[in-house]
Nucleic acid binder design. Structure first.
Length: 520
DNA sequence: GGATCCGTTGTAGCT
DNA sequence: AAGCTACAACGGATC
C-alpha cells in the first residue's frame, strides 16, 4: 500500500509525461494523487504577474487535464494556491508513511530549481524531477559535458545536439521517442478526501471548478470572441498538432522564414500563418518531443528546409535559449549578466510606454500587433521583432525589461528562458548575430519582410478599425495621407487615430548613435 | 596575429 | 517582379 504524488508542474499533459509514467509503471505504487500548485512566487500574490488571457488559458489547460484524469481514474486534479513545500507537507501529514514518491518534471528556472532542491532534501519522501520533459535536452547533463561552451549560433547548438543525440544515417538527431499516454491511471488512496487537505494547508485548496469561480470573483477570465481563438488544454493541443503539422507535410517541409507572406492568414486575421503551437509547448500541454517527431516524420518523406529556418531550427533555438538561461547567471537582468551589453537606456517614459503597450503609437502595423497581443495573447514572431526593436534600440530607447514585462504578462506562450532571450537578442544587447544598425522599419512597404498584408492590409484594418476604410497606399503611414483622403476614409489623423509619437527616421538615427556610444 | 568570413529572418533604390 | 547592391560597419570564430 503505497502512494505517489504526480505534480504537474511545467508539463500539463498525459502524453509523453515521464513523471506520470514512472508512477504508472511502478507496481509497488498502488495509488496516486494528481496535483497542481499555484505558487505566488510565480503567479504573483494576487496573480498580478499573469494577465487575464494567460489565466484563462491556464484554467482551460487545468480543466482539460482534470477531465482527462477523471476519465482514466477516480482522481480529480487537486490545485494548491500557496507554496509547494507547504502543499507537499500537507499531503505528507495526511498520508503518512504510505506516501513514498513525489514525481514531477524538471524545472530550470532559478526559483523552480530552489524549490526542487528544498524538496529533494526531505529524506522522508523520494522526489524525482524528470529531466528532458520540457526540453529535448537534459539541460544539466548537457552543461556538464567536457568542453561545454555557451552556444551562440545555430552551428553551436547543432554541435551540442550532435554530441548528445548523434545523427542517424539520414542525418536526423536521435532524439528519444516521446512516451505514450498511459491507458489507465491509478486511483486515489483509500479514504482520501481533498477536504482533509484544505484543513491542513496554509493556503487555499481548489478543484478546477472552484478555482474558476475564484478567478471569476477576482475579475479574471473575461472571454471575448477574439481571445477564445486559442483554447487551452492537451486535447486542443493534440488536435492543433494534427491540423497544423501532422496533416501538412508540404507546409512542414517547406517551412522558412516569412518573406512577403502575411503573419496571419489573409482570409482570417485570427489564424497564424505559422503553427500557432507555442502556447501549448509553453504550458506543456504539448510535448516538444512529440512536435519534433511529427516534423521529423514529414522531413523523412522528401526534400525539406533545414535549420535555422526550418521548424526543427526553431526548436533548436529554443533549446539553445534554455541552455543559456541555465548557464548564464542573471539571465533576466542587465546586472551581472555576462551576455548583456551595458547600454544607457533612456529614463522610463510612461507616456511612450503606455502608447506602445496600448497600441496607440500612431504606427498602424505596430498598434495592430500590440492590440492583437492584448486581445488574443499571441503575436507573430516577426511582429515581436518589429515591436521590440521599436521600443528599444529602434525608436523609443526604452529598456528592454519594460517590454519583457509586458510580454511576460500577456503572451500565452510566455516562457521565462525564451522571453528574456528574445528581448536580449532583439534589443541588441546579447552577443548574438544582431548588428545594431539592422533596424526594422515600422512602416514597411510591399517588399519588407515585415509586410503583414500588402494586398488589402486586412490585418491592420482588423485590429485598428479606425483605419478600416483607409486606402492601402497610406495605411502604414496614415498621417502622410492628404486631409481629403483622411476625411473620405472617416479617420482624421490626430483626432480619430494618433499621430506618430516619434519621427521614426530621426529617432532611429539618434538611437543608432547612442547605441554605438554606449559600446565604448 | 591580422585578415577575412559569417551571423535565423533589414532597408532602400536601382535594374 | 526578382535580384542585386550599397548602406554602415558589430564581434566572434576561423584561417
Amino acid at each position: 500500500m503505497s502512494s505517489a504524488i504526480i505534480w504537474f508542474r511545467k508539463c500539463l499533459r498525459l502524453h509523453d509525461n515521464p513523471a506520470l509514467c514512472e508512477i504508472i509503471n511502478d507496481d509497488q505504487i498502488t495509488s496516486m494523487l494528481p496535483i497542481f500548485i499555484l505558487d505566488p512566487e510565480i503567479f504573483g500574490v494576487q496573480f498580478e504577474k499573469f494577465g487575464n488571457n494567460r489565466l484563462r488559458f491556464l484554467c482551460e489547460n487545468l480543466d482539460d487535464l482534470n477531465s482527462r484524469i477523471q476519465s482514466k481514474s477516480d482522481n480529480s486534479l487537486i490545485i494548491f494556491w500557496g507554496s509547494p513545500q507547504d502543499a507537499i507537507q500537507s499531503l505528507k501529514s495526511i498520508l503518512g508513511d504510505h506516501l513514498k514518491l513525489l514525481s514531477s518534471d524538471y524545472c530550470s528556472e532559478p526559483h523552480g530549481r530552489k524549490i526542487s532542491e528544498l524538496l529533494s532534501k526531505d529524506s522522508s519522501i523520494q522526489s524525482h524531477f524528470h529531466p528532458a520533459t520540457h526540453t529535448l535536452l537534459d539541460l544539466d547533463k548537457t552543461l556538464l559535458q567536457p568542453g561545454f561552451k555557451n552556444p551562440k549560433s545555430m552551428k553551436d547548438i547543432e554541435k551540442i545536439f550532435a554530441l548528445m543525440y548523434p545523427r542517424d544515417a539520414e542525418g536526423f538527431f536521435k532524439i528519444p521517442h516521446p512516451l505514450a499516454e498511459p491507458a489507465n491511471l491509478k486511483n486515489s488512496p483509500e479514504g482520501f478526501s481533498p477536504k482533509k487537505v484544505s484543513s491542513n494547508f496554509a493556503g487555499e485548496v481548489h478543484s478546477v471548478n472552484s478555482l474558476k469561480n475564484k478567478f471569476s470573483e477576482l475579475g479574471f477570465l473575461k472571454t471575448t470572441a477574439e481571445n477564445f481563438y486559442f483554447r487551452g488544454g492537451e486535447t486542443e493541443a493534440l488536435a492543433r498538432l494534427e491540423r497544423k503539422v501532422s496533416s501538412r507535410q508540404d507546409f512542414v517541409n517547406s517551412f522558412r522564414k516569412p518573406k512577403t507572406t502575411s503573419t496571419n492568414l489573409p482570409e482570417n486575421p485570427m489564424e497564424p500563418s505559422t503553427t500557432g503551437l507555442s502556447p501549448y509547448i509553453a504550458t506543456g500541454s504539448l510535448s516538444v518531443k512529440r512536435l519534433w517527431m511529427e516534423v521529423e516524420r514529414a522531413n523523412r518523406e522528401g526534400p525539406h528546409s533545414g535549420p535555422p529556418e526550418s521548424l526543427h531550427g526553431q526548436l533548436l533555438f529554443r533549446e539553445m535559449f534554455y541552455l543559456l538561461s541555465l548557464s548564464v547567471p542573471n539571465w533576466d537582468s542587465d546586472q551581472d549578466n555576462t551576455m548583456c551589453k551595458k547600454i544607457k537606456w533612456g529614463e522610463k517614459d510612461e507616456t511612450k510606454l503606455s502608447a506602445w503597450k496600448d497600441g496607440q503609437t500612431g504606427f498602424p502595423l505596430l498598434d495592430a500587433l500590440m492590440r492583437q497581443l492584448d486581445s488574443t495573447g499571441w503575436m507573430h514572431h516577426l511582429g515581436r521583432h518589429a515591436v521590440s526593436c521599436f521600443l528599444t534600440r529602434g525608436q523609443l530607447w526604452q529598456h528592454w525589461q519594460e517590454g519583457r514585462n509586458v510580454f511576460e504578462q500577456r503572451l500565452l506562450d510566455s516562457d521565462w528562458a525564451l522571453n528574456n532571450a528574445n528581448w536580449l537578442w532583439l534589443s541588441g544587447v546579447a552577443p548574438f548575430s544582431m548588428p545594431y544598425f539592422r533596424l526594422y522599419n515600422p512602416c514597411p512597404d510591399g517588399k519588407s519582410s515585415l509586410n503583414v498584408d500588402a494586398v488589402d492590409a486586412g490585418f491592420i484594418r482588423h485590429w485598428v478599425p479606425e483605419l478600416k476604410n483607409f486606402p492601402v497606399k497610406y495605411i502604414y503611414e496614415p498621417h502622410l495621407a492628404p486631409l481629403k483622403v483622411q476625411e473620405h476614409a472617416g479617420c482624421v489623423i490626430g483626432k480619430d487615430y494618433p499621430k506618430p509619437i516619434v519621427d521614426r527616421k530621426l529617432a532611429a538615427k539618434e538611437n543608432l548613435a547612442r547605441f554605438k556610444a554606449s559600446l565604448n
